[in-house]
């Protein structure tokens, strides 16, 4: 796939290394510290550094492997929470940065699966 799509054809290649870093991030989507590869006692500066480093690896501008975009969204969410003293405190306490209703995750996550393929398929037309 990709051969018939001339747009960004050159940009569609990725390395196994890039795929691996995406997999790593997606493995821990609920643990913000693990996403950024940090310990619980890290400093704000550590959070910022880890975010920059990881962004360069998973941001869709830098990584064309499938799932990179979702991985970056997860990394950003983790950073947003841990870079702010208040939300980090709340996260450390209740394991979540936002008040959530108890059962939303599983159902919504399942419902969205498969909706994100926006690759153009010539078969469609």
């Amino acid at each position: 796939k990709g051969e018939e799509e001339t747009t960004g054809a050159a940009a569609r290649e990725y390395t196994t290394e890039q795929l691996e870093v995406v997999r790593q991030v997606k493995k821990h989507t609920r643990d913000y510290y693990q996403i950024l590869g940090l310990e619980k006692d890290c400093t704000v500066e550590d959070v910022r550094k880890a975010y920059r480093k990881l962004s360069l690896k998973v941001h869709p501008d830098k990584n064309k492997a499938p799932g990179a975009e979702d991985a970056f969204k997860a990394v950003s969410k983790a950073f947003q929470c841990l870079s702010d003293a208040e939300s980090r405190k709340r996260y450390d306490l209740v394991g979540s940065d936002e008040p959530v209703t108890h059962h939303r995750r599983p159902s919504t996550a399942r419902a969205y699966n498969g909706y994100y393929e926006d690759d153009f398929d010539p078969d469609e037309i």
């Binding site: 501008d61 159902s107 919504t108 419902a111």
Partner: peptide
């Protein structure tokens, strides 16, 4: 009833809105 509305912006800045009933199931 619980209705979930999700917004997604991708790398190309395309905005998608997803919505549906999540409770009851």
């Amino acid at each position: 009833v619980e209705i979930s509305v999700c917004m997604d912006i991708d790398a190309s800045n395309v905005l998608r809105v997803f919505a549906g009933v999540v409770k009851p199931q």
